[in-house]
Design a protein around this nucleic acid. Sequence first.
DNA 1: TTGAAAGCGCTAACAG
DNA 2: CTGTTAGCGCTTTCAA
Lengths: 343, 343
Amino acid sequence: MKRFTLEEIAKIAGVSRATVSRVVNGYPHIRPEIRERVQTVITQTGFRPNALARSLVSNRSNIIGLIIPSVVQKVFTDPYFAYLIHGIAQACNANGLILSLYLFHSLEEEHNVIQTLVGTGLVDGMIVTADRHHQDMVETLLANQIPLVLIGEPEDRSKISYVDTDNIAGGYMATKHLIDVGYRRIGIIAAQVNKSSDLRLEGYRRALNDYGIKVDKRLIAYGNFSQDSGYEAVREILPYRPEAIFATNDAMAIGCMRAFKEVNISVPDDIGIIGYDDFPPAQQAAPALTTIRQPVQQSGIEAVELLLELLNNDVKVPIHRLLDNTLIVRASTRNGVRVESNE
Amino acid sequence: MKRFTLEEIAKIAGVSRATVSRVVNGYPHIRPEIRERVQTVITQTGFRPNALARSLVSNRSNIIGLIIPSVVQKVFTDPYFAYLIHGIAQACNANGLILSLYLFHSLEEEHNVIQTLVGTGLVDGMIVTADRHHQDMVETLLANQIPLVLIGEPEDRSKISYVDTDNIAGGYMATKHLIDVGYRRIGIIAAQVNKSSDLRLEGYRRALNDYGIKVDKRLIAYGNFSQDSGYEAVREILPYRPEAIFATNDAMAIGCMRAFKEVNISVPDDIGIIGYDDFPPAQQAAPALTTIRQPVQQSGIEAVELLLELLNNDVKVPIHRLLDNTLIVRASTRNGVRVESNE
DNA sequence: TTGAAAGCGCTAACAG
DNA sequence: CTGTTAGCGCTTTCAA
């Protein structure tokens, strides 16, 4: 299939290049018969305007970049990124955007690629998955005036737009649920040096405060979001006889359940447990895990749409978008204020 | 940081636009002092040539597309894709290519996106992960003369370039290992309607033939690459007393081991088992799984490099690149021709 | 409502 | 060795 240019289409249709351009772009004031004539030639030839030429004059490439400054292995195995990319790709397709993906295997590579990219005008904007170790890259992007949306709350919220799920509210919701169904001594397994987990922990604190329950430090332990770390961490808490545990992600919650099983503590009768994420393993756990569902895919969509707004109405102030989570009650927390077990 | 153009740099440096272009592109015959003067201005201004303008005139965007016509959820949870994308991204970074990612959530979306993309000259070429259900998309790409490299062997090998790991050799190698260490009645758990598995099965057949072992149909069963399916499938074979099982992926092999455990068959003494892939779960299995390691990341790299060759020396004949696998001996197959167990 | 012409920022002959 | 010039394919005034 030969590639045609505007010029050629114009000649075939016996009109000017400008006219063809107008029908291609849906400009309204064109004599119907002309429009039709041109249209016919376009379909017959299979003409598609050259994206590069278009971009050059319009100064918009319709390409956005997604930067994932993490270990590749981790990224593509973590359901979080699956949902996120799912949402981003979906929104790109819906808005006629091309998604370009930036993955790095070393900081040096990251630096080089970003440096050679920036300033070339290739991408209209960037989405960066938050990671506190890559502040300088974000600075570079910002310095080069590349519209930017972060996924996840950054350290410094003042100058960057981001979308995130509402982790404080989520942590609050999880803790409140435990309180609602009657648990009082509530432990938490948080994650070290992780902003999201920090915020969920903050929600936990606020909920306890609001319900007049004192925060007991001995009921707070830390893991690293892995199942094993949950298993380890909860054993530090167990001696202090918690009635329920809030793990700041599902994997750690499942690790907790493994620990309970080993010492014959039954869920949810002896102890309640709630996770966070609601990725597939939560449902498959036995008993099925009560958890907080994050709208991860939706945050991908929102990120693209926010970026689009940034591009279109050059807003200067950073915009922050927080998405609501949902409490998913399953079998790992007890039902109402029931006290006795079924067995 | 203001964006400069060649023209502006030229004016500042007191030379012509062409000269600046030449130093930017490393053209050799330039008076050193001029080169240096221009270079200085470039670094001072932070000038980067506009990628779009460059692409327009050179007719090369240096953007390649990666099309993954599968369910997004599956893709980003499967370690196979993690390694593959790892390799592709790495090769792109190394070769100054931009990677654009095409994910679809419906056939309609796939069709629309491909249609609007094709013919715009935005991408120089495409890498498509093989999937036998998307032949028409491949046809469209081909019809539009978009240089194409498939990952995995397609149904019709005649007209498309592809890279794959050598599945026949891998299947042969796995089977031969089982024979080498003394197993004779060797069963296989293959996967339905999967080209890779078919080829591995073919390797199994050839190995048995070469060693004078008759293929026994009762020792062949099929799963779908999931752990559960391996668990189910192997139970069909067990009544026929296999001495060893070759599962055409690790997940099914692990499913088999679960089945063995339930009926108290011990690995590797009562039965040997070998998997295929060597993704992390293989190592973590107990006993650790003997398996065939596929160079998946390397196939990503090779795919990019092959595409690059296609782009540069417009070769017309399809090129096929088969990568070698490695036998990884662990604890799930016995050692040498040892017969008695350790226990 | 349409065409002519300028120009987006760059590269690549072609002169000199 | 360097500058001039002519585009790459498109959009967009500006006239007509």
